[in-house]
Design a protein around this nucleic acid. Structure first.
Lengths: 407, 407
DNA sequence: CCGATTTTGTTTGTGCGAAGAACAAACACG
DNA sequence: CGTGTTTGTTCTTCGCACAAACAAAATCGG
């Protein structure tokens, strides 16, 4: 039950019904491919005639392709339909504190090429490096298809309308323009988004097919900072100023460690990678001013810590478990306030999920208000799946499959 | 950018475009009434012919009414259009811990009759009492119009599909069926919802016209418990198990007072009415087991406390201010995680808003992550406006104005 | 006072696309 | 090789957006 925005609505025109049905057909193909026209007609509850007409348009504009005819028990054998993905390329970029990842993939998220380089903190230098590498990638792999766009994921808040990076503390960026410059330099459409939201989009659009793609879920990223991408009613929550999802700074303990945000005892100060490492090293969470440099210089990483825990280092295990417990405490807040169908967790700690899962679950269960919410599925996503790069891909691919905006 | 749910979609049919445009026209009338057909055509960017046809249908089914012709500087004088509200009645019911409120009003929320009685905690007895009173109300005021439905607001979680009250601690209800019984006994459609969500709906649908009805806001109710109704992208957030919005139990201090929920230091234990009163009385927050009875027996109420504060009782003022500060701490969580355009606050404490506003604002500003979010408008809604009863009215009225579900 | 002008509201054709029926194609089976 | 079955196409009907012409009701200017 949505309210119509009387200041910004989209009236139905002659072609609106067609647009709606076209997108439904496209999404049904995406979800059930390979699928025949007749099957599609049954699923959409329309005559086969209309499907022929819809599919005809989709074929013409190259959104889907016709595959081979396939065997059937009786009657004429159907020609199968597929979403065209293989020759539609996407450049996916993940800018992180340490390194920047650059991937060339296709619409389904399949990786064709992957390279990384040390992140330039100056937006101009980063732009220059990116443009050069993108052009080289596209020259090298140009035969594989046409590039439909660039997805750019940054660790910070992004204004979706203007494309400006409002605030990215890890990069030291404030109100930085990069989307339009990159688009101008490459001649390709560029989509920019903050990391947790992009990860949520990837889950929504590139999650396993037939997999119960929930309309209500949260993707929590735990790494240098802690953030979340929230999906409600099948839509990403961006908020009024594009800054929704900042769960990293919910208070856990008013007397807790100082946080970069200026407050004390934020969730982040208990569950970020730095927090976990500090716990292991037996020191206090370092003061915010030293945190960033320390993070870049320290030889020990969370994967190292997990390695040690697995090798029998009891203190490493304890440090991870405690992070798990605090992680659960924060997740309980999400569970109670948003009641998502599931929570996906991304970040280095997921590599140790078998070690910390019990702690996380228990902490959630302790604070969850109902039995149903206490049982909320919490699903780790391994870093080896490159969730942020998949998110960047989703940024480009998703708009072509989204429901048309109506009313 | 919404994802189409391939398991539950609504295909566009011949009449879909008409439905969409009909609802848009209806909502434009609602927002800009009195409005002429010609003006409507300009706002919708269509020919006047189509508006004539749309309005013809809406008039026929009684959704809108034609008013008098009105003066114009030049040309033919337009006939003004209005949403039909005066002779469309709604029974609004607000079940609270102490008393139950019963209102007969019209579609615009205008009150025709209001009565209250002591809440029966037994669902059967409550149902009986409600049915008797509703029938009497409708007999007495039957001449004013026809009743279109009953809106029922309860202090607890409600499953919207089944209409069952999942959990209402204040009433001691667990998985109670009342919607269908009430519908069967009265022959009227009954809509049931939990209080904060209903208040949010009222804000969305019955908020002042021309008032910037935001698509992203949160309605926080502070009274015996603390809850919230969250609106994102113009839609209420109910969550996967209809339990979203339970902000009352976000942790503020792990060493804080025990809470009814079994945890410690929940927001509720610092900002509920009981918390404020306990603070004034100089005692610890009472243990959960005694809380409910104490709350019903204590002679002192929050309005009393506000009265004392205004009369110069410094300790009363301090207690209220501290509640304000904690209120702000919790609101900051909402501001950072959901980034709403505004937050509405309802509950007894709003009567002292001038006394506590500074504390609230400051606490929010301290923890808000950006300047924009720190400036999030926080708007008190006085209890004298009966927000929950207005919410009950909105439950009945809103579905008739909602955007048609498409794709 | 009467025609020109302006604005509102209705009516009337036209074309897009859903709805459904009829038809053609492709295959299995006896 | 006919018959039945399923897929895919074509064709007709009808609702509704779209646009233009038309009728109605007011002001204005001579």
């Amino acid at each position: 039950m949505r309210k119509i925005n009387v200041r910004d609505f989209r009236r139905a025109t002659r072609s609106t019904a067609r647009e709606i049905n076209r997108q439904i057909a496209l999404n049904l193909v995406r979800e059930h491919q390979p699928i025949s026209r007749a099957d599609l007609a049954r699923r959409m509850d329309v005559g086969r005639g209309m499907v022929t007409s819809l599919i005809g348009e989709l074929l013409e504009e190259g959104a889907i392709v016709e595959g081979d005819t396939v065997d059937a028990p009786r009657g004429r054998r159907p020609k199968m339909l597929y979403v065209r993905t293989r020759d539609r390329l996407v450049v996916s970029i993940d800018v992180r504190l340490s390194r920047t990842y650059l991937m060339l993939g296709d619409f389904s998220g399949t990786q064709l090429a992957l390279e990384t380089f040390e992140t330039r903190f100056s937006p101009e230098e980063l732009l220059e490096e990116l443009v050069a590498r993108i052009q080289r990638l596209l020259r090298t792999h140009g035969s594989a298809g046409e590039c439909e766009g660039i997805g750019l994921v940054v660790p910070g808040m992004v204004d979706r309308r203007t494309g400006r990076v409002l605030h990215a503390p890890q990069l030291g960026w404030h109100d930085v323009e990069i989307r339009d410059s990159l688009a101008a330099a490459t001649g390709l459409p560029v989509y920019i988004e903050n990391a947790p939201i992009a990860c949520a989009l990837a889950q929504m659009w590139l999650g396993q097919r037939g997999g119960d793609s929930a309309a209500d879920f949260v993707y929590v990223t735990v790494s240098d900072g802690v953030g979340a991408g929230v999906v409600v009613n099948g839509q990403v929550v961006r908020g009024h100023n594009s800054t929704a999802g900042e769960f990293g700074h919910i208070p856990i303990d008013p007397d807790g460690p100082r946080c970069l945000c200026g407050s004390q005892g934020c969730w982040e100060t208990y569950t970020s990678n730095l927090a976990t490492l500090s716990r292991y090293l037996g020191r206090e969470m370092p003061p915010p001013s030293e945190a960033r440099t320390l993070l870049q210089r320290t030889p020990l990483t969370v994967p190292d810590l997990i390695q040690r825990a697995r090798s029998g280092d009891a203190r490493a295990l304890a440090a991870l478990r405690e992070t798990g417990r605090y992680l659960g405490t924060g997740l309980a807040v999400i569970v109670n306030t948003l009641n998502p169908a599931r929570i996906y967790v991304g970040g280095e700690i997921t590599a140790a999920w078998d070690l910390v899962e019990d702690e996380v679950r228990q902490a959630v269960a302790e604070r969850a208000l109902t039995r149903a919410t206490a049982a909320t599925r919490i699903i780790p996503q391994q870093a080896s799946e490159y969730p942020r790069l998949r998110g960047a891909t989703a940024l480009v691919a998703a708009p072509l499959f989204a429901a048309p905006q109506v009313a």
